[in-house]
């Protein structure tokens, strides 16, 4: 894990200002696209908590994204006026419960077993929704009405309005970012990072590492469920593909490309991958070939991702400053 240095904070603040200003210049299509990217970023940040901070390589994280989306669509399908806070609370608690069960079974194993188990459980959830005739099967399911955010009788934020929703999702993204950076600075987070570095040593220090891993898994699953909830409320449509293993694979790609072990890295990775997915099909029908080539390139030449690059640049910057200071002394 890297400490957040001042150049990084300045960089993040510039990114935030750019995101705040974007809808004014971006036009409706790109505003919608960036909304989608920010929702996916919430999902990939939560995956980074597992991969980059706790050292748990989950290959089934898309399951929780899909469960969050499906729960909103299933539980509130017939409801005319969906209370936003109630639906969110219910969806997230149930997603957290699913993460607790799957996590409890999975963290008993480690290494390759953990990867394959999370993958297999995600496939199990996928087939549950794919084959079940009650939940739309392979066609997916529509959500008739969007949740309403009301304060008394006054409607606070209109989720039908693309600009409202953009800022709403941005607020969630910033909130999740701050929440996770708070957790990671707390003693709990230090234990997670230590588990990634050397689990045996942490256990020798008297920590019950399975409990820490499980809590991390549940937090990550619940945040992924939040992203799924936001996506379902955005598009009013949920398909089993949300839970598919290709989604989990692409999410890992986004985390690694952006830089795991940093909270802002996954956001950068998500932006790049989704923009490429949007951009490449203009050139060739076989754009996944290029995508595969990019992934191989990242694995071989950029294992620390773009955040790693940013850190090495900012380190050079701060160390040259220090040398500069030393000359004066």
């Amino acid at each position: 894990m890297h400490t957040v240095t001042r150049p990084i904070i300045i960089f993040l603040c510039i990114c935030l200002v750019l995101l705040l200003l974007f809808p004014a210049v971006g036009g409706p299509f790109y505003t919608e696209l960036v909304t989608k990217i920010m929702i996916l970023s919430i999902f990939t940040i939560s995956l980074d908590l597992l991969i980059g901070f706790t050292g748990l390589v989950s290959f089934g994280h898309a399951a929780f994204f899909g469960i969050g989306a499906y729960l909103l669509a299933i539980l509130f399908n017939e409801v005319e006026h969906i209370n936003y806070w109630w639906s969110l609370t219910l969806t997230l608690s149930l997603t957290g419960l699913a993460a607790l069960v799957i996590g409890w079974l999975s963290i008993r194993t480690s290494g390759i077993y953990f990867i394959m188990l999370t993958l297999a459980f995600a496939q199990m959830c996928f087939y549950f929704f794919f084959e079940s005739p009650h939940f739309g099967g392979d066609d997916g399911i529509f959500l008739a009405n969007k949740p309403e955010i009301k304060f008394g009788t006054h409607q606070l934020i209109d989720l039908e309005n693309e600009h409202h929703y953009y800022y709403f999702v941005l607020a969630w993204l910033v909130g999740v970012y701050l929440f996770l950076s708070m957790i990671l600075r707390a003693p709990f987070g230090h234990v997670l990072i230590a588990i990634k570095a050397n689990e045996q040593r942490v256990r020798a220090l008297g920590y019950s590492t399975p409990h820490y891993k499980l809590v991390s898994f549940v937090i990550a699953g619940t945040i992924a469920g939040l992203a799924g909830f936001l996506e379902a409320a955005h598009t009013s449509f949920v398909t089993p593909a949300y839970l598919g293993w290709h989604e989990s694979g692409m999410a890992i790609m986004m985390v690694i490309l952006g830089g795991m072990g940093t909270l802002f890295g996954p956001v950068i990775g998500t932006f790049i991958v989704v923009l490429l997915q949007d951009f490449l099909p203009n050139f060739t029908e076989h754009w996944k070939l290029i995508m595969g080539g990019i992934i191989i390139g990242v694995v071989l030449f950029l294992p620390n991702g773009i955040a790693g690059l940013i850190y090495s640049i900012s380190n050079r910057f701060t160390s040259s400053q220090k040398e500069h200071g030393r000359e004066h002394v």
Binding site: V57, I252, I256, M260, M291, G292, V299, L300
Partner: peptide
């Protein structure tokens, strides 16, 4: 790390399917 093995062999699937 297994993580990179997963990622690279996943890329091989994408490439094989496109080919």
């Amino acid at each position: 790390d297994h993580l990179y093995q997963v990622l690279l062999t996943y890329a091989l699937i994408l490439i094989a399917n496109e080919l």
